[in-house]
């Protein structure tokens, strides 16, 4: 069995199983606790919980004015690499085929050269994020191993993907195998670290949305 066969076969299978199992475990495990320790006594005319939750999810997409200056880098850079990752993951044809293979869903992709460009920007943005984390006293204090590991496991697929597409450093199939293995590592770690915010942010934002919504307060 070649490295690529291993990556595409057992490694990917195991990683996806761990990913799904872990992610469902964590969501179910976290959210099947009592939902309301403090019952609602909503203000008259307050938003309905559903609307308030939705509002919470969307309002949190951009910082309030007083935080815009200090948080500019965090937000803009965050957007750059999140959108970059989304574009690379969701609009590169080989990736679409991968998703199609799993889910049956299909949509058109973007030209590869454009994807390479976005991936380079994404990688640069991730590096900038790491440098920021390493230099900020606040982030130094609150960062944990999880933060660095999650960063690494997000960064590696971007780098190995770029190397594979540009055939740099080794034979293509080796690079492709490494790329897939790096994604396996990403998927395996995903449910256990902060990468889960990709799913959990909805609940967190939504719950604060409901809490503040019933009070008629801003989010």
């Amino acid at each position: 069995m070649t490295l690529l066969d291993f990556a595409r076969g057992p490694a990917l299978q195991a990683a996806l199983i761990i990913f799904v199992l872990g992610a469902v475990w964590r969501i179910v495990g976290a959210l099947t606790a009592p939902w309301r320790l403090v019952p609602a006594n909503p203000r008259e005319g307050a938003l309905s919980p559903a609307v308030a939750a939705l509002k919470g999810v969307f309002v949190k997409m951009w910082p309030h004015k007083p935080f815009q200056q200090a948080g500019l880098f965090t937000f803009v850079n965050g957007y750059v690499f999140h959108f970059g990752l989304a574009i690379v993951v969701l609009l590169f044809t080989p990736h679409i085929l991968f998703i199609k293979g799993l889910t049956g869903l299909n949509w058109p992709g973007l030209p590869s050269n454009l994807i390479y460009m976005v991936a380079v920007i994404t990688g640069a943005s991730l590096i900038a994020g790491l440098v920021h984390r390493l230099r900020s006293p606040v982030l130094q204090l609150i960062s944990r191993n999880d933060d660095y590991l999650s960063w690494l496991l997000t960064f590696l697929p971007v780098v190995t993907g770029l190397l594979a597409t540009s055939h740099l450093g080794a034979r293509y199939e080796t690079l492709l195998a490494l790329h897939i293995l790096s994604i396996c590592a990403f998927l395996i770690w995903f449910p256990f670290g902060k990468l889960m915010h990709a799913f959990l942010f909805v609940f967190s934002r939504g719950m604060t949305g409901v809490r503040m919504g019933q009070r008629g307060a801003e989010l």
Binding site: R8, G9, L16, W25, G29, L97, F98, K100, L102
Partner: peptide, 28 residues
């Protein structure tokens, strides 16, 4: 296609989701 998994994972992943839900509920 080359970028897809070598295996058909549908049942395995459905199983994983069910097992995850069970483990999550159990842990909870």
């Amino acid at each position: 296609p080359l970028s897809t998994s070598l295996r058909d994972l549908g049942p395995a992943l459905a199983g994983a989701a069910v097992a995850g839900a069970a483990l999550g509920a159990g842990a909870a």
